[in-house]
Nucleic acid binder design. Structure first.
Lengths: 205, 205
DNA sequence: AATTTAAAATGACAGTGTGTCATTTATTGT
DNA sequence: ACAATAAATGACACACTGTCATTTTAAATT
């Protein structure tokens, strides 16, 4: 997290920094990004940057966390609209994220984040949905999901189902960028996978 | 891939380089690894490194690819032993990878790779199992898997099932390292998820 | 209002690593 | 033995990082 000093800045200056950082993270992935470029673009001295952030990861994960919170709120609305249908909701969430990708302002930034999606980035992203060993967030979702039509014996299984659906969604989003898939193809592929998860892979016949 | 010059080296010198690289990639993840440390450890001049490899990624992905090929061969044997049962085979593969983790020689190196598993690393790893648009590899697996007890309409669905199971397995392996899970817990969690995938998430009742 | 104290801003600097390239050394073919 | 090709070498220019002593600004106190 940014240091307190950052949050004491005027909103204008905070946004100046954030925009400069997003610009740099649009140019290249986190590990190639340079603080030098960010401060040059924002027009602040080098020392100031370190007054506000620990390092470039600090500001990067701050941005990802903000984005994730928005996606989570969006997901909550979607589930409500779909009366707790988990499967339809995930497909709708996928679609809404794709629409966000289409915006040129976000595209490169999100692309770089997804193509370099590692454990820490994924964790930052998903922790706003459910947190390992933190049940409060999980319950909010759990209460909204119509679980009686789900094939689950207990709450733990619900957690695993969410985890699987999330990782499958993220993988499909990564694919969109890696292979520059058109939206309709991406949606078809993801819908198919959600359907397989729904029905199960095993057939008794 | 390493340059031809590398493969012209004596086996001893190749292994010297490989060991030095593994040592450095054990110390820190790819993006923090330094070529300076590798050449210092191997006792070769800086210029020589660039005679053999493009950059540090070049040698890293070469190592990952080698590992992946071994895992793939292992998987083939496991499927045969299990008479094509995909679910049991994945659980067995998971167990065998965990055993490999336990070896101190590999542990840190693999841990760093998994905690920084991004698209390119995952692709390098999975391309030896199935390649998008390259059907030959896929068929080898496809033929071994007893697909008549699977809930699939066509070959495309088989591909998606493999993709999902692989990503779920990788995510569980990442979890092992991120949360330092004991083997029996990791196996229990993965088995549960495989079982959920097998049965399906949706219940008609 | 003047003075003290604390907080924030600044930029020069040392340290570390990268990739290149001109030169030297070794190997191969004639 | 000589030429030609391949490989090895290490000095160098360039880029970026994180720190820290110093300066500036803001807040608190008398």
């Amino acid at each position: 997290m940014p240091k307190p000093t950052f949050f004491n800045l005027s909103m204008e200056k905070q946004e100046l920094l954030i925009n400069a950082a997003k610009k740099e993270f649009s140019r290249v992935p986190l590990y190639d990004a340079s603080i030098s470029n960010i401060i040059k673009d924002a027009g602040i001295p080098r020392g100031s940057f370190y007054q506000y952030f620990e390092d470039k990861e600090d500001i990067f994960f701050f941005l990802i966390d903000e984005d994730s919170k928005q996606v989570y709120q969006n997901f909550i609305s979607i589930i409500k609209i779909n009366n707790g249908d988990l499967f339809t909701s995930f497909v709708d969430l996928f679609k809404s994220i794709l629409i966000n990708f289409a915006e040129p302002k976000n595209r490169q930034y999100i692309k770089n984040a997804f193509l370099n999606m590692n454990y820490k980035i994924e964790k930052t992203f998903t922790k706003n949905f459910y947190e390992e060993n933190v049940k409060s967030k999980f319950f909010e979702l759990n209460d909204l999901i119509k679980s009686k039509s789900l094939n689950i014996a207990n709450e733990e299984e619900m957690f695993h189902i969410l985890k699987i659906m999330m990782v499958v969604m993220i993988q499909n989003l990564v694919d969109v960028f890696a292979r520059e898939l058109p939206a309709h193809e991406a949606i078809a592929a993801f819908s198919l996978e959600i359907d397989l998860l729904k029905k199960g892979f095993y057939s008794r016949t």
